[in-house]
Design a protein around this nucleic acid. Structure first.
Lengths: 206, 206, 206, 206
DNA sequence: GATGAATGAGTCTTCATTCAT
DNA sequence: CATGAATGAAGACTCATTCAT
């Protein structure tokens, strides 16, 4: 039963509960550290029943990763040529930060996969991801050539955006441990900081 | 037998080989995904012999983490009040980037620990680490008040430095997958980028 | 639902398909190695539906074995007192060989059962089978006493017939592996060989 | 620990006990029907300890089959050109029968493997085994051409010898169920029968 | 200091079977 | 008649750890 789309209501529900529980576990324990027991418990299902919906531990993990990359690229894809370059990039930063706020577990799942050497998504990295980065880097270079943006390596600029925004999801406990606890309000502070920060760094130097 | 200091030469060597192998394994597999077999194989020792040096899997992991935090803070600790604030911070960025180049496994070990919720080092985070961040944030705030630095939240600034520099260690395979392969030369490009980038962002706005 | 006779056409068909698929699986995997999944797949039914027709794995196996013994004895039963003894026995050999050609899976099912110690059909062996062998052995002894057949232990003679003829079903892959592939033509060669062979061995020595 | 030859005394002993127990189980239950629990119990070891000696269920089975084919071919290999052809073949028959008496479990293991389609030893069948059969068939043909042996297909003759002799191992429970119980004495009767039988069938017809 | 031997507790997965619809 | 859903028990195999030598 790992075909196409789920059919019945129960299937849809259980599949969703499994993926949700699996996201919890994989994103914190990593693939090797996760156990089906934890996932089954989290989903409120017996282990064999869980395996009735997904044939293996790997299948669950694969399913989670499958949709991830595309969702992950959406904010960058949405960066457009028209409009002010600096604001276009700042908007991208803020969209990406929003992803970290809304989907922190997905971010950590992704981070775990990369830390392990990306055994399952290397293809997507050197494929879709690299292509998109190449394309957007060219766009940024155009802006820079036009003097609308400070000169700097576009790829490393993109890396910096990923790093600074994902940090708030991946290193969440550290961030919270250092900032005196304030719920999720630090995301607003982060947004303010990052917007200022990137505006400062990106504005063309005279 | 993880008391005091190792005695004989063989003991010192084996302890070192175990920690080195363990660093390989824990940093890529995470704690749960790592096995003593992998570590023993990497160290060229039998599993029982490995447990002669460290009483348990947890003991090896703990030993690795123990020294880590201090080493990790050194570059920040070295940030001094005297000298030009912008350059002082840029120097810190570059020191930190160097850490990622020289100790990528340590960086990944740390990232893994945080991703898992920092169960073993939460104390150090809300202790030494927070204290140091508080202290250096105050220093940065002083500089800002003196108009020597653009105004921005000092803690989030520090987060951004951690994020952008550790990215080159933690997301190494992604970075290499996107940049067309060029050995370790991208660290130089990263240094140039980050120096420019931070100078641009930090210089006081008129 | 393994009572009386099947009722509807669909029931008859499905029962037949199940038994056919089960014969495939049990005869090659043995009882323990067979799974209901394999059988259900072979029959084109869902597992629960399969268990609607037969209450258990054991029930299917039992049903298969039940009819088997009688069919298996028919060729021997057909051996008659009248006619030439040598040709009567040769005719039995050829009938038995035909069984191996037409019902190789049944032969292998039987062989599997015996290899496992005949846990389910020991009763039939020491009952019907032994009785029939006793009866036909007496007949053969009569022929031998009359000088119409070379003297030899009648029971071991019967064993030899079973062995040589069933070999072509039970060790089919070995036979085909040694003879260079030639479809099913080797059964004709086997018939010629066995007829000659038994005539030579059985004819009274002067 | 499935390398080369066992080293220590304990290893030798346990390896032997495992293989002995495994032979019991595989030869009656087939590969799929056998469980490591049964084998471990038979060997007087815990299951993990058993897997310390052989890495997997398949490894035990492979080890058992590995030596088998060669041992199985020895009696045929020993058939020599010199001496009386009929007696040479009869001697082969009796050697082969002896194998069934002394190594009945090995015979059943082999039979099980063939019944399942020889998935693991097909290579040896179409290799060594076929080569040897080709060679000895040529020898038999020579004898027949010289008028020292009745004319008949040599390969089917060899099949008949395998069939009649292995029958006493593979169908042991059936043989014993039909013959009124008499310990192992029926092997002597079988030897007498088969010697007579093959002499009668093989002697050249006038 | 080092290794062979052993194991209890898990971990993933399969299987025969049941139940509700 | 038939299938989706569920499961307890077992099966193969792994793992951290222990013990004796």
């Amino acid at each position: 039963m790992n075909d196409a789309a789920p059919q019945t209501r129960i299937q849809r529900e259980n599949t969703a509960r499994i993926l949700d529980a699996a996201l919890d576990v994989f994103s914190t324990q990593g693939y090797g550290g996760a156990t089906l027991d934890q996932i089954a418990r989290g989903a409120g299902l017996s282990k064999p029943n869980l395996l009735y919906y997904f044939n293996s531990k790997a299948a669950i993990h694969t399913t989670l990763l499958a949709g991830l990359m595309q969702t992950w690229l959406d904010p960058l894809r949405a960066m457009r040529r028209d409009g002010d370059p600096v604001e276009e990039i700042v908007a991208y930063v803020l969209r990406k930060l929003d992803m970290s706020r809304i989907y922190p577990r997905e971010s950590r799942l992704f981070a775990n996969e990369i830390l392990q050497g990306a055994p399952r998504i290397m293809g997507q990295i050197t494929g879709d991801l690299r292509d998109l980065v190449d394309e957007k880097s060219a766009l940024i270079a155009t802006w820079q050539a036009a003097g609308q943006l400070a000169a700097m390596d576009p790829r490393h600029l993109i890396f910096s955006i990923w790093a600074t925004t994902q940090h708030y999801a991946d290193f969440d406990v550290q961030v919270r441990g250092i900032l005196h606890p304030e719920g999720d309000r630090h995301f607003d502070a982060a947004a303010v900081f990052l917007a200022d920060f990137y505006r400062g760094a990106l504005r063309p130097r005279v």
